[in-house]
Each structure stands twice: as structure tokens, then as C-alpha cells.
Computed example of a mutant assay.
Amino acid sequence: MKIAVTGGNGLVGRFFVAEALAAGDQVVCLSRTPSPEVPHLPYDLNGPAPDLAGFDAVIHCAYLHEPGKYRGGEGNDPDGFRRANLDGSLALIRAAEAAGVRRFIFLSSRAVYGQQAPGAVLTEDMHCTPETLYGQVKLQVEQALATSRLKSTSLRATGVYGPGPAHKWQGLFDDFAAGRRIAPRVGTEVHGADLAAAGRVALTQDTPPILNVSDLLLDRSDLLAMYLEASHRKGPIPARARSKDYYVMDTSRLRALGWQPGGIARLKEALRAMV
């Protein structure tokens, strides 16, 4: 299979590139900077749509945002954020339709659900009320795919973790090691390799148009306790989060297709690699 991965150099896109290479696919990275691992085509969400002739599938991970931010990633330029991430994605969808691409995988987000009843379980068929621009744009791209001619799957991913040159918890671990106050928090997480495995399911099976992708409900106190164990350090563990207003994602639809995430064992393995 010949696959174009937009944003293949990013913190999340790199997992899709690695998974496709391991599966023996021919991979081309569409990004602003060349990839050291695979062929590269220059691509910018603010630029013209790429020529996708000859590609069997597109995995769309590219997203323009303020560094380190997704919710609130528009910074002081919401119009520019919308032009890049909504208009740019719509142009990519049209280019894929024109080229006859067979499969289109979109990296969406749990942010599309917005505020729900406290303790609600998030299912793919529930009404979405995103309150952030990030979630609104992701939902609009999902809706555009639903009315396109493409065979598409939107992966509503939770927080994505995994080792690498930079990772999502680097700042948290640095603050913890320096003795700075850590605010209590609980959230859902999935390893990037498990997210990419969900993409493989969407590429190779007849899947529903929307799939939740999540694995662990993780309290920061538990995460930092495992970090201490992996790093052989000692220190005071912060308090557990008190709020029960988090939302667990129902992944039964994806699991019924054979997907099985790595759970705590994969998290501990990733922490050892991060350390």
C-alpha cells in the first residue's frame, strides 16, 4: 500500500509512519520539513493541496497550533487557526477525492465531545458539543468527511503519549524533579503505537466512520509514582485528583475489530524509555 502521512514528523504522526513501515507499506511524509526516514513531499496546511495521484491511502495528522497546545492552540489568531486546520483539511479531502484515494484516516480528538454530564461515558454516537475552537474544527472536518466520496475513518483520540526526542510529559517530569508544585489531574491516555494500530484497523477493515481510541484512565499521582520507579529516584508524590468530572471513552467498537492496547505494561515500558 502506498500511504501519504501528513504531519509524519510530528509527535503523533511519527507513530503512524513507523507502523506503516513495519507493515511493509510505501510511505511518503507530507510535511514542512523533510523526514530522515521516508520520502518527503513539501506540504503546508496553508499552502496548495498536494497531488495525491497514485496513493492508496492518506493518514491526516498535520495540525497547525501553538507549540505544546491543542485546546487553546489558536493563540491570538483564531482566524488563521481555522484557515489552516479547517480550510486546509477540506482542500486535502478534495485532493484525495480527485486522485481516487481509496482510504482516508483522519486524526480527530476526544475534544469534539465537549462538556457532557459529569462522569459520562463517551460513545461515538452521542451528541457532540465542543466548546473549544480545537474541538469545533476537528468536528467540522469529521462532518466534511462524512459527506465526501471517500471511504474514511475519523479516529477520536485521547491524550497520546510515547517516548521520543520530545514527549508530552517532559515538562511535567522536569517540574517534578525540580520540586515544583504539581497540580492534581486525571485524564485518559493512549500510547502512540496503539493509536497507529487503530489506524491499521481502519486501513484494512470495513470500519465505522468514527472510532474512539483510548486506553488508560491515569491520575498524575500514579504516573509520577511509576516515573520514580523507572528513574530510581525518590520524592513526594502529589495528591490525587479529587474531581470525578472526567469522561471515560468507550472503545468497545474498536476492540470488537480486534484492537487491543498495551495498558499499564506499555506505559511502564514507555516510561523506562523516556527516562
Rank of each mutant, 00 (worst) to 15 (best):
H65G: 09
R156K: 11
Y134M: 11
V58F: 05
A62S: 09
D219C: 05
L150W: 08
L223H: 03
A230Q: 10
Q115V: 11
A99L: 13
A98W: 02
P67Q: 12
P184S: 13
L52R: 03
I182R: 11
S35N: 15
Q205N: 10
K234P: 00
I105V: 15
D44I: 00
A49W: 04
D44H: 04
A117H: 02
C29K: 01
K234E: 14
C61A: 13
G24F: 06
V186E: 10
K151M: 03
A62L: 07
A96C: 09
E124N: 12
W259G: 08
E269N: 04
A117S: 15
V201I: 15
N76F: 06
G68H: 08
A96H: 08
L86Y: 14
W169L: 10
Q136V: 03
E131D: 12
L217Q: 11
K69R: 15
V137K: 00
A177S: 09
V248D: 04
G164M: 08
L92I: 11
A99C: 07
L64A: 14
T147R: 15
P236Y: 12
D222C: 05
Q143V: 02
P236H: 07
L30D: 04
G13W: 11
I105Q: 09
V27Y: 08
V58K: 01
S109K: 07
A4M: 07
L30P: 00
D125E: 15
S152R: 00
L223M: 04
I264M: 14
A20V: 01
R14L: 01
G164W: 14
H40M: 05
F104R: 10
A84G: 13
I210W: 08
E229T: 06
L64N: 10
N212Y: 11
L133C: 03
S31D: 15
E74A: 01
D175K: 11
K268G: 00
G187Q: 09
M1L: 10
G159K: 06
Y227S: 02
A166M: 00
V101C: 02
S231C: 09
R94G: 01
Y70T: 14
M226F: 13
D194K: 08
E131I: 11
T147C: 11
P118Y: 12
R83P: 04
L217A: 07
K234W: 09
K268S: 10
G179T: 13
A99Y: 09
G80Q: 00
R32M: 07
D51G: 00
A225P: 00
T123F: 03
L216N: 05
T204M: 13
R83N: 14
A265E: 15
E124F: 09
L41W: 11
L267T: 05
